[in-house]
Design a protein around this nucleic acid. Structure first.
Lengths: 157, 157
DNA sequence: CTACGTGCAAAAGATTTGCATTCGA
DNA sequence: TCGAATGCAAATCTTTTGCACGTAG
């Protein structure tokens, strides 16, 4: 990425939010922009508690209720995606920024075959999923807005 | 299905449980067989509360703690599968019997595009997912034990 | 007999809600 | 100004845990 690209992206993504809020008639609160900025400065998946703690550390005071609130808006705006990693154990929802990324799916690698401890999460993109999607739309007469695909496994050896 | 097939299946699935419990050194409690029987008599997805209520109605007294406990065993034994339908709203985990079924995936149809109310869940099976799975195993050096694929959309028109 | 499994109730963890206060338009 | 957003705490909901008791092996 070129120098200064991050700032440019940030400006752009804030404009996307601004436009969305305007369309919906929602308010431009500073919290919404601060949370957006924080999310787009992260390179990993996060959950609400992660985000809350990070913002506390940086002395941005935002309540969890507001974070949940804001996340719902961002989901609807398509600015983030939601995930439920952790197939067998109960885990909180994870999120990730989505605006500049192409849609991708996830390979969840467990530490062992108990399926309870996650070692790593790898992102991938396989175009064949599009073919399946179109077949399903055709077969059932639906419009598919999104999909989620997870593979669960362990390291070979 | 031929007459009497259901009873035959039930006998068979109980044997699978019996063998699993024996291998693991777990006990043959009546609760485990009763819950298994109940699950395998259902044709739909269910959550813990559904199952609890159904069993209460039938006067089989089983505590929720035991149901959660038992479900974990059944998951490990491969007798049931777990799902998290409801992409945007928080929902309890759903389960379904899995022993006689081939692995299948799900199309979640929403009532509208808010993504909060589920109208219907359709099962499907597309062999192309196997190709993707093998490509991922190859590419990342992993053994994939399972996958989950959901499409989310709305009825066309 | 002697753990293991169960039932019950309490606890834990994530998310939602109610309400008083703040603040953007 | 004034209704929408926020912060805080309490409530809710699902799942887990602790402990006393029952029972399979």
């Amino acid at each position: 990425m070129e120098p200064g690209q991050k700032d440019k992206n940030l400006t752009q993504i804030k404009d996307v939010l601004r436009q969305y809020l305007q369309e919906k008639g929602f308010r431009n609160t500073p919290e919404r922009y601060t949370i957006l900025e924080e999310i787009y400065s992260m390179d990993h998946h996060f959950n609400v508690d992660d985000l809350y703690l990070i913002m506390m550390q940086k002395k941005y005071h935002v309540s969890k209720a507001t974070i949940y609130n804001t996340i719902e808006i961002f989901l609807d705006a398509g600015l983030i995606r939601k995930h439920q990693f952790g197939e067998k154990t109960l885990t909180s929802s994870s999120y990730e920024k989505s605006y500049f990324d192409k849609q991708h799916d996830h390979l969840v690698i467990y530490k062992n075959d108990s399926g309870k401890e996650i070692e790593e999460i790898i992102e991938f993109c396989d175009p064949r999923i599009q073919g399946i999607k179109e077949a399903i739309e055709e077969a059932f007469g639906v419009n598919i807005d999104s999909h989620s695909l997870y593979f669960y496994g362990t390291k070979k050896d």
